[in-house]
């Protein structure tokens, strides 16, 4: 704090009269950073500023707010819990490292989606995901006819997941974000760095390929 005052005084001293001496964005953030108890009520942008001012606990709140979405994206790409949780953690660590590069042009959720998708696409490029069997995914125990129906339903889900895993990367990313995260085409475009038209074309081809793959698998 003392160093900041010295800095402001130094600038004020050498600035010609009539100049406004503006306190830098970061110093403003530090003074506006919510106190510990109010961090929970702070919006994402304020939390980012608090992180940049050295308050790591603000990032814990960002994690708590967005962990479900980040994990679910990773799970949809990887198809198993272990890889999904590892990649979700990796996505958050990368986000933390790159926090100063977050310019706030998009929502932090969109930015985290972008990082997660990139982390997943990089991983599936070097390692074929191992799809989790459905009994490991916590299917409820059901009896009799209902058990048969549940088994059939799980088998159908497994077929769909396997087919989605075979889609080209951009088509898979588009389909996951659109169908499972229900993001608008515009936000998907921002996440994937495409135009809205390209996103819709990718989605069209993803569905057309999915249709073919499901037909092949019966």
């Amino acid at each position: 704090m003392g160093e900041g005052c010295t800095l402001d005084r130094a600038w004020a001293a050498v600035a010609a009269p009539g100049w406004d001496v503006h306190v830098s964005g970061e110093r403003r953030a530090r003074s506006a950073t919510p106190a510990g108890e109010s961090l929970l009520q702070a919006d994402d942008r304020a939390l980012v500023e608090a992180c940049l001012a050295g308050r790591r606990e603000a990032f814990d709140i960002i994690v708590q707010r967005h962990q479900r979405h980040v994990y679910q994206v990773c799970y949809r790409f990887m198809g198993n819990h272990e890889d999904a949780s590892d990649l979700a953690q990796d996505a958050f660590v990368r986000a933390y490292r790159g926090l100063r590069g977050f310019k706030g042009q998009s929502a932090i959720g969109t930015w985290l989606y972008r990082i997660s998708v990139n982390v997943c696409l990089n991983r599936v490029s070097v390692k074929t995901p191992r799809l989790e069997p459905f009994d490991a995914a916590g299917t409820v125990d059901e009896r009799g006819d209902r058990a048969d129906a549940a088994l059939l339903r799980d088998e159908r889900k497994a077929v769909v997941r396997a087919a989605i895993a075979r889609l080209p990367k951009k088509q898979r990313a588009t389909l996951i974000l659109r169908v499972y995260h229900e993001l608008p085409h515009e936000e998907i475009a921002a996440i994937l760095g495409n135009s809205v038209g390209a996103v819709k074309a990718n989605f069209f081809h993803a569905l057309a390929n999915l249709k073919k793959l499901l037909k092949e698998d019966g």
């Binding site: 889900k157 997941r161 999915l210």
Partner: peptide
């Protein structure tokens, strides 16, 4: 056909 593929995909509520 596209609509059916979409419905089939969205029937998977995830993990």
């Amino acid at each position: 056909a596209l609509g059916a593929a979409r419905s089939r995909a969205s029937a998977d509520e995830g993990h």
